[in-house]
């Protein structure tokens, strides 16, 4: 599943960039994230309870900063597993705009859901994934703007 969008962030570019590189910051905006364990500057592991309504699964997600070209391009890969299901996602975030802000972030995400969730939840998956990703980038925007 491919998703994309643009968020306008009321913050200077370097601040946005720093946020994206900080696992604790960017990780906290991930859907349902309950804890983050930083392995090194490009690798971290999150535990997340992902779901909709009372339907949820606990995922362990390995995140890798696959590409970072300061100050405008970051690619984050996520590989998450829960009993019977798995999620693999690549999020590409491109920053533009004046150095002092506001910063425009054009994002795209490629999300692959495998296993029970895909098999049984097919009729809900796309809408739910779309929403969660939207929430993630909204979270980034609001955290930066509010900081």
């Amino acid at each position: 599943m491919q998703f994309q969008g643009t968020v306008q962030i009321d913050a200077p570019r370097d601040k946005v960039w720093a946020f994206l590189l900080d696992p604790n910051q960017v990780g906290s905006c991930g859907p349902g994230v309950e804890s983050i364990e930083v392995i090194d500057e490009d690798h971290f592991r999150a535990k997340a309870k992902v779901g909709v309504g009372f339907i949820s699964a606990r995922f362990t997600v390995d995140m890798t900063m696959a590409e970072k070209t300061p100050p405008d391009l970051a690619v984050l890969k996520a590989h998450g597993q829960a009993p019977g299901s798995a999620v693999d996602a690549t999020a590409r975030m491109e920053l533009s705009g004046p150095d002092a802000g506001p910063t425009q972030m054009d994002w795209s995400a490629d999300v692959a859901i495998s296993g029970t969730l895909a098999s049984v939840g097919a009729r809900m998956i796309e809408g739910t994934a779309n929403k969660m990703i939207g929430q993630t980038f909204d979270c980034i925007r609001s955290k930066l703007a509010g900081a």
Binding site: I113, S114, A122
Partner: peptide, 10 residues
């Protein structure tokens, strides 16, 4: 689907 998920599993 293109990932090989069986979409008729129940």
């Amino acid at each position: 689907d293109e990932l090989g998920n069986n979409l008729a599993g129940t």
